[in-house]
């Protein structure tokens, strides 16, 4: 059993906007986070769940040329079974393939994963380094928000040991963790296709190699020029910061240089230094601060030197 006031299922986005504008409306699509939160707590007793799941108007994956547009009701399984996604945005495909398990992926949506805004989300780091944006609609109309501007800083989430859904502090995330207005809902995501030179690595560290929440994860992209020097690099680590961040944040010390582990250390050090600011807030800091630099080094070695990370052979 869960504890909720009411349930409704709009047939269209227009109807959803009307329903979501009402007091106490909580929108969802797959419900794989929401149904867990509603089971244990009573704070949804006066709320109405607005079910966007399976809405045909939101169930599209469109190739727009340089970008791909993904509707908010597209499940992670549908994403994974779409060849265009695996070919054009392999980093997102990799990240989505590591979310939970098949049963969850058959219901969960990319939009929901973003809207839930967990610091340990697997898809969010990929969307950050790929420079994705979301299209949002509400009674005041439609707007587009870059993913990098979608999240609010949340120190409380760092204190949340394990970052499990069932003990999440925030039942509703729209105004607490996101820069959305009450009543707004995500209708689609837009992602730039990875270029031919744009390599990527996604890595997720879990307890016991289980399919649970990430203890640490990261998504990184980079490219090498014809002379073998670095022409681009960006990484978003997950499970560590109060809101998603891409590194390097200022100048990129890798550009124009030949990749080697000593060079990677400049990026790794910047991230470690930033992480040190969370020392008193982040649950598991002692572990994460020691392990994150190691896996980042290994990730960059895989990205630029072709040395596979341990555990990266897991694939669908």
């Amino acid at each position: 059993m869960i504890q909720v006031g009411d349930y409704c299922r709009p047939a269209s986005v227009a109807e959803a906007v009307t329903l979501c504008a009402r007091e106490g409306a909580v929108s969802f699509a797959g419900g794989t986070d929401l149904m867990v939160k509603a089971r244990g707590r009573s704070q949804f007793r006066d709320k109405t769940f607005v079910d966007l799941g399976g809405m045909s108007e939101l169930s599209f994956i469109r190739d727009e040329g340089e970008t791909i547009s993904i509707g908010a009701a597209v499940t992670l399984t549908q994403l994974l079974q779409t060849a265009a996604i695996k070919e054009s945005v392999p980093l997102l495909w990799q990240a989505a393939s590591r979310v939970a398990n098949r049963q969850v992926r058959n219901r969960a949506t990319l939009a929901g994963n973003i809207a839930n805004a967990c610091p340990a989300s697997d898809c969010i780091p990929a969307l950050m380094v790929l420079g994705a944006s979301v299209t949002v609609t509400g009674t005041e109309g439609e707007r587009t928000i870059p993913v990098a501007e979608l999240f609010r800083s949340c120190e409380a989430c760092l204190r949340h040991d394990g970052m499990q859904v069932r003990t999440c502090f925030f039942l509703e995330t729209v105004t607490k963790k996101l820069t959305l207005r009450q009543g707004e809902l995500i209708t689609s995501l837009e992602i730039s296709k990875q270029s031919a030179e744009q390599r990527s690595v996604f890595y997720k560290l879990t307890e016991n190699r289980s399919s649970g929440m990430a203890v640490l994860n990261f998504a990184m992209t980079g490219s090498l020029g014809a002379d073998g020097t670095v022409t681009a690099f960006s990484v978003c680590p997950g499970g560590v910061f109060p809101k998603p961040r891409c590194f390097p944040e200022r100048e990129n010390p890798l550009l124009g240089r030949l990749p080697d582990r000593a060079l990677f250390q400049s990026i790794v050090q910047e991230i470690s230094d930033s992480l040190a600011a969370e020392k008193d807030t982040l649950a598991g800091y002692a572990y994460k601060s020691r392990v994150l630099p190691e896996i980042l080094q290994d990730g960059m070695a895989q990205l630029f030197l072709g040395i596979p990370m341990e555990g990266s052979e897991w694939s669908i």
């Binding site: 869960i2 349930y7 299922r9 419900g31 794989t32 149904m35 867990v36 089971r39 769940f49 079910d51 799941g53 399984t77 939970a100 398990n101 098949r102 049963q103 969850v104 058959n106 219901r107 859904v165 069932r166 649970g212």
Partner: peptide, 25 residues
Amino acid sequence: IGECGACTVILDGKAVNSCLVPAAS
């Protein structure tokens, strides 16, 4: 909470955790 799979059923051809599916849907 959708982690153990003991509640797995097949919904519209897909394996799902029935503990996470609202009956009203």
